[in-house]
Design a binder for these strands. Structure first.
Length: 930
DNA sequence: GAGTTTGAAACT
DNA sequence: CAGTTTCAAACTC
């Protein structure tokens, strides 16, 4: 009480400049900043720092709120995109530009998931970003390309980081030059796309650009970015049908794939294709090659270029509809914070996205050598996709990682869940997202939901995407990305009619497909997404973290679905759905004495920190995927399950009288079954009863250890990942997730769940963050459909795998495992010796800590590439950065029990079998032995 | 719409 | 950690 009042008095003075600044003002400022930035090239720092800091006090310091979510910053940001987008846009542009396109893409996907339809986004973005866009356009318009680009970037930034990435590219490169050369590039690019003459292209590029390979590389990128439009037309003749939103995402992923496939006949390409595992290495190599070589490796350079181009295309495409983000009317402080933190804090985050960003930053900054930039891009291209996939989920979420990520709605999570991450994946933090239909589970939160105007095209788009995916990618990793995109698309399509949260988005990552199952997996994924998107009809109101989006009526974005009616809490407690979702209250809220407003950012921030201090996972998605699915969950006892079967409430419910059959029950409300974590009495949860869950677990895991592990360790990990992800997410991921929080996390949860866990454990170390976690590792090769018949076996497998992976580290050699892994994992793990992963604790711990993507990046680089640096190895905890250690410590504390359990339990199994692969393949054996 | 019920969040 | 209180949503009428 007191604090709020105090804040009121204080905030006005302190925050007034920041928060009070009218959107237009902020926009203009930002625009000007952006403009200057572009013109000056140097720039990222000046512009954003101020506004962001002011806007989001919490960001400066790792937001306590989203501490857990560190990893998912991206997602978080993506998750909760609301009003703030404007400010963020400008600020982010400068700061975020550094981010890799891929990151942006990821965010885009998340956003898409959240917003669902580009069309949907458009309106919103227009509202929010119109001013900005116009201003920026005018300001930046040096060239048409630039204009579009900048404009897009601005708008996109709000929702997507991609734009920022593109901007960064532009900035990094000599803008003027690039602009001038745009025409040339355009001309050249088409050819490239056609593969007519990569060599020529390279030569031209070299000639046109500075002699230095570095410059050339940059130029290429820049050009590519600028040439996006041309490329699009050329490359995507058939894609016209696709909505801009979809196209960008898909293309981004696909583009990379294509580039790799098409252009990488080179050894490098082989590396990439041959080893998803070695993506990092490939990226490194690619970088190396790119450095020297455009000449020598024209193809390689081209690839990078194309990738960048495609990204650009994506951006460009978004332009028309680019204003997607606006979908969120509300602003998500967390999310923003996450962005800020990410942007300001470090060039290198732990997450791949961060990595990408860094790379781009390097380009923009000149600090990094072109080499790095090229490498980054390459890596981004290779890994970025993964990231994308990851983000989605997450997303989850909303931010699970409140602090680090700040926002994200940690998983699709519930709160942010609303999105989680939802939200938008993630917009992870989103968490609480209520998914439009299903809500993003967790991603935390956020509701990623964005309404999509009904897109008649969605279906066609989806098809296109699928086709492309199948056609384009041979690599599972790529497929994964494609899947993600598809998933988002599917969700969009499914949601077209209705706004939806996408917990699914958060969890999109979960839907990995193996090459074999591509078609099916994709379609299934889409189906799953759709399912997730389904909202429960009954709900009058959704909680932010709820996965379901009931609000068919709501055309608003997921976030819009979140409203509060607080009377006494002043919206500064978790009672407030808005706050829980990492969102500010808006006019739609009927709260009284509300302090959860932009005007009281400081207060909100403090409150969040306070809440987080009490419960670090307070803003994490409430719903997370579980490793084990109860049969009931898989099919849904009622067959109504909208949420992933594997999804479970993080903490479980405590229902006494409602029998978990009313919305009083958070599990039921989230359309998830009860689990062992629930203390409910007389559970009759139609989505899965606690007893069933327990029985299933017992049967599958055959050991209390598994349960304990799953419940505690996995859940935590998942949560963290979700939060960070999401939507995001979400969830994280999204939120979520999902959110997927929002971070990150959805329908096919059974499968996905296992995957998610898998990924989590495996990927934990990866900077990729939650998002990556979300992706289903476990299932990669498994058919998406987990029929009950297969369910048991698969489940058993999953458990075994999880245990093994956790304990021993993944055996990437194992085809299944590899496929299952998200790119991030591959990158991270691959680059390194898995020996590093050998330490279960370190691995598991690391992942949550992924908040510092930079570390990861460095690690991955160091491992794969000598260049890098600081971290000698992930494997040893000692070597981990302080922050990492701290995070790990926290995580360990949280999961200490699980770890122990894991060790104890898993060991027998593992020991019994020498090879991890065997364990993975033969879960039964382990179980039988047990 | 008012009142009741419910369970999470907050507090002790 | 358990018990109690507070709170706001869900529910009922």
């Amino acid at each position: 009480m007191g604090s709020p009042e105090i804040d009121k008095t204080t905030t006005p003075t302190t925050t007034t400049t920041n928060t009070n600044a009218s959107p237009s003002d902020s926009v203009t400022i930002q625009d000007s900043a952006i403009f200057s930035y572009i013109s000056n090239l140097s720039p990222i720092k000046p512009v954003k720092a101020a506004p962001m800091a002011a806007g989001f006090p919490g960001l400066g310091s790792p937001p306590s709120v989203f501490t857990s979510p560190h990893l998912n910053r991206h997602q978080e940001t993506s998750y909760l995109k609301r009003p703030r987008c404007r400010q963020l846009c400008s600020a982010e542009l400068s700061q975020q530009d550094v981010r890799g396109k891929k990151i942006a893409i990821c965010s885009n996907e998340i956003e898409k998931s959240e917003t669902q339809g580009s069309s949907v986004l458009v309106p919103c973005t227009e509202k929010e970003c119109e001013k900005k866009g116009s201003v920026q356009d005018q300001a930046t318009s040096p060239s048409g390309c630039v204009d579009d680009y900048s404009a897009d970037s601005v708008e996109v930034d709000c929702a997507n980081s991609v734009h920022s990435g593109s901007l960064s590219l532009i900035q990094s490169g000599d803008v003027p030059k690039s602009l001038n050369d745009c025409n040339d590039l355009k001309e050249m690019i088409p050819k490239l796309d056609e593969k007519n003459d990569i060599g020529q292209y390279a030569e031209k590029a070299l000639g046109a650009f500075p002699a230095t390979s570095e410059l050339a590389g940059q130029n290429f990128q820049e050009k590519s970015s600028f040439d996006n439009k041309p490329v699009e037309t050329d490359t995507k003749p058939g894609s016209s049908e696709m909505t801009p939103n979809i196209c960008p995402i898909v293309e981004s992923d696909l583009s990379v794939d294509k580039a790799l496939e098409e252009h990488y006949d080179l050894p490098v390409a082989q590396h990439v294709v041959a080893a998803h595992k070695e993506k990092l290495d490939c990226a490194i190599q690619f970088l190396l090659e790119s450095l020297q070589p455009i000449q020598g490796y024209g193809d390689g350079s081209m690839t990078a270029i194309q990738a960048s181009d495609r990204h650009v295309e994506n951006i460009v495409l978004h332009d028309p509809k680019g204003k997607q983000h606006s979908g969120m009317h509300r602003r998500c402080p967390w999310f923003e914070e996450a962005h800020q933190n990410i942007m300001t804090n470090s060039p290198g985050f732990g997450s791949p996205s961060n990595i990408v960003t860094n790379s781009r930053l390097s380009t923009s900054h000149a600090d990094l050598e072109v080499f790095e930039s090229s490498c980054l891009e390459v890596s981004a291209a290779s890994s970025g996709r993964q990231l994308i996939n990851l983000t989605q989920p997450m997303i989850s979420h909303r931010n699970s990682g409140s602090k680090s990520a700040v926002l994200k709605p940690s998983g699709i999570g519930l709160h942010l869940n609303s999105i989680i991450n939802a939200m938008p994946i993630a917009c992870g933090a989103i968490g609480s997202m209520k998914s439009a239909e299903k809500g993003y589970m967790n991603v935390e939160g956020r509701k990623l939901i964005c309404q999509q105007p009904a897109n008649t095209k969605s279906g066609s788009i989806l098809r296109n995407v699928r086709e492309r995916v199948s056609a384009s990618s041979e690599d599972g990793s790529y497929e994964t990305q494609a899947l993600v995109a598809i998933t988002s698309l599917a969700s969009q399509s499914s949601q077209i009619e209705k706004p939806s949260n996408d917990p699914a988005l958060l969890k999109q990552g979960e839907y990995q497909t193996t090459p074999c199952d591509k078609g099916k997996s994709i379609s299934k994924c889409a189906d799953a997404v759709e399912e997730l998107n389904r909202s429960s009809p009954k709900k009058k109101r959704k909680k932010a973290w709820t996965t379901n989006d009931d609000d068919d009526d709501d055309d608003d974005d997921d976030y819009s679905c979140i409203h509060c009616n607080c009377k006494k809490s002043k919206c500064l407690k978790l009672y407030c759905d808005c706050l829980a979702a990492g969102m500010y209250c808006d006019e739609t809220c009927t709260c009284q004495e509300c302090f959860n407003r932009l005007e009281y950012e400081d207060t909100v921030q403090e409150t969040r920190q306070q809440i987080e201090s009490r419960n670090p996972l307070a803003f994490a998605p409430k719903i997370v995927q579980h490793v084990t699915d109860s049969p009931a969950n898989n099919n849904g006892e009622n067959g109504n399950n909208s949420t992933p079967s594997s999804a479970r409430h993080k903490r479980g419910c405590n229902c006494k009288k409602s029998m978990c059959s009313k919305k009083y029950c958070e599990c039921y409300q989230a359309n998830v079954g009860c689990s062992t974590g629930c203390r409910c009495e007389g559970c009759k949860n139609v989505y899965g009863r606690k007893e069933e869950y327990d029985m299933t677990k017992d049967a599958l895991s055959k050991g209390p250890i598994h349960e304990s592990f799953e419940n505690t360790f996995d859940e935590k990990l998942e949560m963290v990942s979700n939060q960070e992800g999401l939507l995001q997410t979400e969830l994280c991921n999204p939120q979520n997730l999902m959110p997927l929080t929002p971070s990150f996390q959805f329908s096919n949860h059974g499968k996905d769940v296992s995957k998610s866990q898998f990924s989590t454990r495996r990927c934990l170390p990866s900077p990729a963050s939650n998002v990556t976690f979300l992706p289903p590792h476990g299932k990669s090769q498994r058919s998406p459909e987990n029929s009950d018949s297969h369910g048991t076996l698969l489940k058993a497998r999953k458990h075994d795998e999880d245990v093994v992976s956790c304990y021993q580290g993944l055996d990437y050699s194992n085809a299944e495992t590899v496929d299952g892994f998200s790119l991030r994992c591959d990158e991270l793990a691959i680059g390194n010796d898995f020996s590093t992963l050998t330490n279960p604790p370190s691995t598991t711990i690391a992942s949550p800590l992924s908040s510092k993507l930079s570390d990861w990046t460095t690690i991955s680089r160091s491992q794969s590439c000598p260049v890098s640096g600081h971290l000698s190895s992930i494997g040893s905890d000692e070597k981990l950065p302080d922050t990492m250690e701290d995070n790990m410590t926290e995580i360990l504390k949280d999961t200490s029990t699980p770890l122990d359990a894991l060790k104890v339990t898993s060991l027998p199994c593992i020991d019994s079998k020498d090879s991890t692969s065997q364990n993975v393949n033969d879960p039964e054996d382990c179980s039988s032995k047990k």
